[in-house]
Each structure stands twice: as structure tokens, then as C-alpha cells.
């Protein structure tokens, strides 16, 4: 099925006060098309979110899904248990509903992955 490129969803990005990001404590509301990633939309709007590979692999961008729904059609390393635990990767996540994310969750996500024997947490936190 071909998605309409013009369909957009409202995405709220919450940056925790405890975050080391410059935008700590701020909240941003964006309109994000179904065919663009949340990271790309945020950066286009001047909201600098952390990211590295931008291929859904390194997990630098990890966030928590508070509300809504996203799809990760192109993520290279995203597991069912990530989804079940509410972790998302904004670098490859595309909205499928109005959505709220808490960003800056890399450290928690590494621990989560390590607890589940999944990389990169399993290889980084044991060293």
C-alpha cells in the first residue's frame, strides 16, 4: 500500500530535565509526515536530538514511547522486546499516530539491551 506523502502526525518530543542535552527540560511539538523519520523532522525544525548511525543500529538516539505509535521499517537492529518495552529509535521511527516521545534514553536502553542479552548493551556494559 502506498502511503500518502502528505499525511502528517503530531509528535511531541520531551527532553527530560536531567538530560545532558542543551534542550533539557524543554518540550517540542512537531508535525511529522508518515514518510519521514522523527529525527529528520526534528533536526529540520531546529531541534537537535542525539543520533549517530541513523540506520537504527547504534541506539544513540534511543527514546521512550509515551503515547502513540511508530514504525521502524528500515531499522537495522530493533527487536520485539524493544517495542514491547516502549523503546523506539527516532532515527528510523516514522509516526503512525499522534505520538509523544521522551528522548535521551541511550543509557537506559543500553542497560535494557544488556539485560536481554542484546547488542550493543551486551557488549558495552560487560567490558
Amino acid at each position: 500500500m502506498t502511503q500518502s506523502a502528505s499525511e502528517t502526525w503530531s509528535v511531541r518530543i520531551v527532553v527530560p530535565e536531567t538530560s545532558s542535552l542543551d534542550a533539557a527540560g524543554e518540550t517540542f511539538d512537531l508535525e511529522v509526515r508518515e514518510d519521514e523519520t522523527i529525527l529528520a523532522a526534528a533536526r529540520s525544525a531546529g531541534v537537535w536530538l542525539p543520533a549517530d548511525c541513523q540506520q537504527g543500529w547504534c541506539t544513540t538516539c534511543a527514546a521512550r514511547l509515551v503515547d502513540g505509535d511508530v514504525a521502524h521499517p528500515n531499522a537495522r537492529r530493533y527487536y520485539d522486546e524493544d517495542r514491547e518495552a516502549g523503546f523506539v529509535l527516532p532515527c528510523t521511527a516514522k509516526p503512525r499516530a499522534d505520538t509523544t516521545l521522551i528522548v535521551g534514553q541511550y543509557d537506559d536502553f543500553l542497560e535494557f539491551r544488556a539485560d536481554h542479552g542484546r547488542p550493543p548493551g551486551s557488549s558495552k556494559l560487560d567490558t
Binding site: C53, C58, P120, K124
Partner: peptide
């Protein structure tokens, strides 16, 4: 460097 090359590959920042 990790002693186990599998750890090194798993933590690589690119796919």
C-alpha cells in the same frame, strides 16, 4: 580493545 572480537563487532557504531 575488547578481548572478544564478537563484542567488538557487536558494539560497532555502524551496521
Amino acid at each position: 580493545l575488547p578481548n572478544d572480537i564478537r563484542d567488538f563487532a557487536d558494539r560497532a557504531s555502524c551496521p
